[in-house]
Amino acid sequence: MDAIVIDNVSKAYGSTKAVQTVSLSVKPGELFGLIGPDGAGKTTLFKILVTLLRPDEGRATVVGRDVVKDFRALRSLVGYMPGRFSLYPDLTVEENLSFFATVFGTSIQANYDLIREIYVQLEPFKDRRAGALSGGMKQKLALCCALIHKPEVLFLDEPTTGVDAVSRKEFWEMLQRLKERQLTMLVSTPYMDEANRCDRIALMQTGQILAIDTPSGVEHLFRKPLYAVKAAETFRLIQDLRKAPFTQTCYAFGEYLHLTTEEGTTPADIDRYLRERRHEHVTIKPIQAGIEDSFMALMQHG
């Protein structure tokens, strides 16, 4: 039995279609990523799955419970870390954790094993008010509070947004360790580079799913030849390549530009074109597309 089943779920706010006939399923123990920008419908989908919002159409179950009919039973089976910091800022670290444990009829001691690795980093600050914690610490506390009643499925809505690259990496390492305990997790993120840390991902855009696959499966959805191009003057290179007769798309990707071309274009053609325009230190190499390349290609066709 799948841990999460979403079957043709739609939700609108007035005329805004936040989620449009979305279907997907998540297996027990899977780390599943919803990847997409703001407005993709990620948060609305989360709220439906944790029973805070009723879908307009379609149905969804989490660990076999219907999100509408069985909402009361379901609430104690899921953990939810919302995108916005939602702990009590004027309670201490320990008081927050104890509060959430009590609400779910358990205690910190009963499930301490599950949070120990994360909570030891917070323990030196257990008497500090949650509102006075740093961003990274707030995030760890929120994760502990979402785990303290030992849920079967954990929902994490953009846990790493606005967090620096080092803290993001640490957070994903924590999720990997939770995965080893067979916890099912649904995580959303706007950072494409985090998609590789999931077992499977769904790419989302304006309420719709563009693709569902493993990270490498999504990369292979990109079928056109792709080149990484670099030269001494990046801005002039972008401008010239976008004007080139053989160019389909040209986007900056870190130190390189990623270029897709018309059928039959060779690296020699690109090189000749750039030399005619006096570009120096030109590098052109064929590359395998990444998840971000696939996402951008799917966006344009969607």
Partner: peptide, 9 residues
């Protein structure tokens, strides 16, 4: 923050 990859570029 938060925008899609094409808009970001």
């Amino acid at each position: 923050g938060g925008v899609d990859p094409i808009t970001r570029r």
